[in-house]
Design a protein around this nucleic acid. Structure first.
Lengths: 179, 179
DNA sequence: TTCAAATGCTTGAATTCTCAAACTCTCTGT
DNA sequence: ACAGAGAGTTTGAGAATTCAAGCATTTGAA
């Protein structure tokens, strides 16, 4: 809190010790808190909605959607992970669970023996068809119904910018992996 | 997927079966995906940043901040839970963990024997002081530095609206609890 | 050809989160 | 003065997430 060679053994990595921290203004704070509140409330809301109606958390649902839209209802693990913005490890666990439910099946990749495809099963497609309406409705009610077209557009721009900042879209198309 | 009395035993609760679902337009889809990508990337980013520099996930950090700003560095469990938008149960577990770290201490409420205060310890305040700069910087870099003042303002408005929709600010000040 | 480095994916253990069920205490009405 | 309802918090078990480490395969450079 003071500028002198501060207390403990921790000369914090992320901050040049001598540089004065630029705190958030009151306005910025308000924005940031609204963001935090809205995002956690919304995530919770959708998670519960889907857990109740589809028997899986929001992200898992997103995985099924990803597969449903892919060419032969299948995607390489890494691709699916990137598309869904989660780590491969997390995906592995997730797919294992969805496999138990019979909604996804793994298949070996013929051209690369290390590779695996995650494939959406008919059962999987069926859950999706059955639960998608409820989910879309939930999203609509929570977000789109409440925003003007201009707000929606701006929201899109903003989120696009933030996402790009965290995940350099450039740099060799495939994997410099996240960050 | 068809409109007839659809297949399985699941006559989905959340949807009047006969009503045609209103899907998202292409524009809406783009916005929604950007939102999903940005929020999950950002959460991940901040979680890692804080896990690395402060030894705790983002939400836990938020709890400490909440306490630091409260009158005598203390808040009733329920209050803290509401303010942080998490369930009481989750808070209980979280505080237990923070207590182990020596950053928070529980105290009985004198006026209500059921009640508990979560109190920020000196050690807790110290971690906060030591790690806040890095965190603010991370937030700044990921969000504010990338947005124009107008975008920031709109973001605030939007998030405010969404949050309110999910958590009716009205209805008896205290607990009709979330949703 | 050979082999170290890089890729693709999985695994296990430690943490955290969710949900439902508990428990203790407070309040209200009778 | 009580019974019952409800408030405030915790607990335990199961599910999900993270992190680091581990295979197996492929790449590319010598």
């Amino acid at each position: 809190m003071n500028t002198a060679p501060t207390s403990a053994e921790e000369a914090r990595a992320a901050e040049k010790p001598t540089e004065e921290t630029r705190w958030l203004s009151d306005d910025e704070q308000r924005v940031w808190r609204s963001y935090l509140h809205a995002t956690t409330l919304l995530e919770d809301h959708l998670d519960r909605q889907l857990q109740r109606d589809a028997g899986m958390p929001h992200i898992y649902y997103g995985l099924l959607v990803g597969l449903a839209e892919a060419p032969r209802r299948r995607l390489r693990m890494t691709e699916l992970a990137m598309q869904s913005k989660i780590t491969r490890s997390r995906l592995s666990h997730a797919i294992a669970r969805l496999e138990k439910n019979g909604w996804v099946r793994r298949e070996d990749c013929p051209s690369d023996k290390r590779g695996q495809f995650a494939v959406l099963t008919d059962a999987g497609a069926e859950v999706l068809g059955r639960t998608a309406p409820g989910h879309v409705t939930a999203v609509r009610q929570a977000v789109f119904e409440r925003l003007t077209p201009e707000q929606q557009e701006t929201l899109g721009e903003i989120m696009q910018i933030v996402a790009e900042g965290l995940q350099p879209a450039d740099a060799g198309a495939d994997l410099p992996w996240l960050r």
